[in-house]
Amino acid sequence: MIVATEVTMTSRRPAWVGGVLSLVMLMAANAAAHHSFAVFDHTRTLTIRGTVTRFQWTNPHGFLEMDVPQPDGSTKHYSVELTSINMMQRVGWRSNMIKAGDKVSAVVAPLLSGEPVGLGLEVTMADGTTKALPVPNVGSFKRATETQ
């Protein structure tokens, strides 16, 4: 049972491309986000599967707390940071969509620091439906293909 798969994607762009991109990202972020998402890895995503311990419906951000079984039989706790619940509600998210005990999976942009926190990009619920999070400038997060 593989429960957490990381695929690292690296790419090298000329420095000026990065400069222009970061300027554009800065402007876009200013237009739509309160908080900097620069703490999250923009070059890879992680798919985590586990059991929900709490679906926290709060501002400034919601959180999906998950216990994720590891290959060695242990359990690792992950916090999936979501957007503002106001943004989530405006695109159809509801506080009762996920409950403690649900088996879910989430595609996250992991913290660069390596700590077990990721920015949620989409969640596949217990019933199999997948719902995206309204992350501003979501295209700046490179999706890795999950391999199991």
Binding site: T58, N59, P60, F63, E81
Partner: peptide, 24 residues
């Protein structure tokens, strides 16, 4: 309009003025 309360802010500034996330 929806309500908006900063009920659980896990972000904080460290001693160097950087934005960090509290790990639960």
């Amino acid at each position: 309009l929806l309500e908006y309360i900063c009920e659980d802010n896990r972000e904080y500034a460290d001693d160097k003025g950087r934005q960090k996330i509290r790990i639960n």
